[in-house]
Amino acid sequence: MKPQDIIFILILIILLYKRKAEWFVYTGLACLIVSAPLFYFQIFFTAQRLTYYAVAFFTIAVLIYILKLKKS
C-alpha cells in the first residue's frame, strides 16, 4: 500500500463517519483539481491514483444521495 492510499483511506474513514454527501463531492472534485498539475508535470502515479479516488468519492456520494432520497 502506497502513502497515497493510506491518506485516501484516512480521509475516507473521516468522511464515512460524517456521512455528508456534499463532502464526498468536494473531496472528489479536489482530487481531480490536484491531479491536473500532476498530470501536467508527468507525475503520473499520484495523478492516476487521485482520479481513482475521485471516482470512489463520487460513487459514495451518489450512494448517500440514493439512501437519502429513498428515506425522504
Binding site: E22, A36, A47, A61, V62
Partner: peptide, 21 residues
C-alpha cells in the same frame, strides 16, 4: 499522455451533485 485541461469536463459534470440538495 493525459491532457490535464480535459479534467475540467468531469469537474463540471460531477459538480452537478452539489446542487442535488
Amino acid at each position: 499522455f493525459m491532457k490535464p485541461e480535459f479534467l475540467l469536463l468531469p469537474i463540471l459534470a460531477y459538480s452537478s451533485l452539489l446542487f442535488v440538495s
